[in-house]
Design a binder for these strands. Structure first.
Lengths: 231, 231
DNA sequence: TGGCAGCCGCTTGCATGCCAGATGTTGTCC
DNA sequence: GGACAACATCTGGCATGCAAGCGGCTGCCA
């Protein structure tokens, strides 16, 4: 129950038996990281050859990674032409917001009694965010990761694996969009954290319905801010 | 807007420029079809070689198809061991029901005014089901396909591509489960069609909230029946 | 008879090579 | 000068080959 992301997890290393990491996984992580943080910008054409060369592996595993990324909607493969970084559709951001509202709202609302392990996960995520802010680390990944963890914990606590998996895919896509635009002012971040606290305490009280409302507000606000920043 | 399924569509052929169909796609369709209809039963170990031989292609495209199917949750790849047809978890059926209730209910409820093109799609699906029943064709795919079309139309009409895509994945997984068990008595099918009619007319009247209730009832009933049949 | 070591055959992982489709370019002709 | 045809060169699609991990079988030994 600890994988961060879908499929070939990149995070949550732990100290597994240290399998040498397959070349396919290497290529997958390499490309996905760049797709999500914007180093491979939407509309760019990628070539298997180039990435294979960069990584010192053959085209085969790169090709496999591309296939996976296409299935996730991050890449579009055009036969004998190349791999296009999926353009961000005008409605994508709205569509994602809707899907998140639906999913997170549902999962939050299903909380009707305190759940200590959820509370713990939320507390940890909040703490991580505060540390990031305290350290002036507003730009780093830390904040983003902790934000994901916070929201993911709510969904995961609901215990529906299928929904959780689909939710992870949503976050991946969203991360790519927000990489474009997120104007992270310190005040906003502080406010986000405050909202997280409120949400967490509603859940700790077993008040799922209230948590749902707070989450919806929170997500909408973030959405509006991002939209503003993108313009 | 006509693809039936996710990714490398298997249905909805239409008469595209008749691209020769890539070997990867061939392998993908071949395996997916068998995964969904139960000819590759849960727990079975598949081998790239065998399928490649059967299809008269090399292992490479088969391997790529397997990767895609793993991403869809239909297969689990174990390094150097083989591909295991994902076992059906005890909660999978419940999880799917919940996800469908959430998604379909949401999309249906969003209908607040009549939508002629939705009405048409629903009518067509209902008609196809009746034809199937009339022809005594209760066991055939026709009924299943039309059922999918009916429910999918409601989700697709909502216009959120991301949600629609995820919904398709849900249906794929569900099809695999119901292939196991669906006891199709004629009376039940007739009843299902009647319920479809009710849902369609609620939507035609722009009464999304009512349609939602009907859908929820409808799905729960089907779930219960399937559960009973599976025991 | 029970346990264990070594082997054999299975599997996939991945590199490589060949080929065909697609595109941009150049040279020619009007 | 503009249009078109042939070419050069890029791309990926897929077959093939080799190596290495893993499991089960066999045969030895206690």
């Amino acid at each position: 129950m600890a994988t961060t992301s879908s499929g070939r997890s990149s995070g949550g290393a732990a100290q597994a038996p240290q399998r040498p990491v397959s070349a396919t996984t290497t290529a997958y992580r390499f490309a996905k990281e760049r797709l999500l943080d914007g180093r491979f910008p939407a509309g760019q054409l990628l070539s298997e050859n180039e990435i294979a060369r960069d990584l010192g592996i053959s085209r085969t595993p790169v090709r496999e990674a591309f296939l996976l990324l296409e299935a996730e909607g991050l890449l579009e493969l055009y036969p004998r032409r190349g791999a296009l970084v999926t353009p961000i559709s005008p409605t994508e951001s709205d569509d994602l917001l809707e899907a998140r509202l639906l999913t997170e709202g549902h999962c939050a609302a299903s909380v009707t009694a305190p759940d200590p392990s959820l509370d713990l996960a939320l507390a940890e995520a909040i703490e991580a965010q505060e540390e990031a802010v305290g350290g002036g680390d507003v730009e780093s990944h830390i904040f983003t990761v902790a934000d994901r963890d916070f929201h993911r914990a709510i969904v995961a606590a609901h215990g529906n694996e299928i929904i959780t998996r689909q939710y992870d895919a949503l976050r991946d896509r969203q991360q790519r969009i927000s990489a474009l635009a997120t104007a992270r002012s310190r005040e906003r971040i502080v406010q986000f954290i405050a909202e997280h606290r409120e949400i967490a305490s509603a859940l700790a009280a077993g008040e799922g319905a209230r948590a749902r409302e707070l989450i919806e507000e929170h997500l909408r606000l973030a959405h509006e801010l991002a939209r503003g920043a993108r313009r």
